[in-house]
Nucleic acid binder design. Sequence first.
DNA 1: GCCTTTTATTTCGCTTTCGATACAATATCG
DNA 2: CGATATTGTATCGAAAGCGAAATAAAAGGC
Lengths: 116, 116
Amino acid sequence: MDLRPSAALKLWHDVMLAHVHGDDTDLSARQMVILLTIYLEAPPHTVRGLAKKLDVTKPVITRALDTMGARDLVQRRRDEDDRRNVVIQRTVKGALWIEKLADSIVERARNVARRS
Amino acid sequence: MDLRPSAALKLWHDVMLAHVHGDDTDLSARQMVILLTIYLEAPPHTVRGLAKKLDVTKPVITRALDTMGARDLVQRRRDEDDRRNVVIQRTVKGALWIEKLADSIVERARNVARRS
DNA sequence: GCCTTTTATTTCGCTTTCGATACAATATCG
DNA sequence: CGATATTGTATCGAAAGCGAAATAAAAGGC
């Protein structure tokens, strides 16, 4: 992908602005990264695994799952093989949210000068 | 710009992850949009103007300026022509922050499949 | 010179998040 | 079984952000 710095900033600005406008309540940077990780990388996802991958403490993950779980963007499930683990799963609503974000980025990228 | 949805999401994830890792304290979505607006669009910028452009209340702008001002990312100045106005100005540190963000996006965009 | 309008900030009570630590539940090792 | 390790959550006080309304300062209308 070829992207000049000024185009990158405009893209970032436009998508962020749409994000702030759009959602009922917008997700924090951490929450967004967690959600994206869950939807982009292969399962299974655990609290510990996410904490390590994002280099944050476990309570941060727990809190984010509380918030996003309340909004039905992710789902918790006990791992029956090792009941200490909690497996984080996708939801229909979460998939839609992600899809909407992707569309938003793609659409705004189209309005950005190419190579130029 | 040509960008598939999956590439867009990966780009977003990677940049956000770097953002969360990198900064001492990361900026909220609103703060980031405000900062980008100040640095992308032509001055002068006022509290009222930013509030209208981003469709938020004025206290939101004031608070964001407090926070970012404390981190020396933006600067306030009284408008001497109309002393009710506050003009928001760029700082060296803010410019560096923006530049770093741009580089981060550009670099990660390079690692994303093109057109595919 | 008042009265009204406009601009930015302050204040209020509330909610959310933070890091750090403590804790409860489960698994593992001997 | 009993000690230890691991996993996720709960709790704590502190900090930050929110919307709504009140306030202070400055400008403009008449």
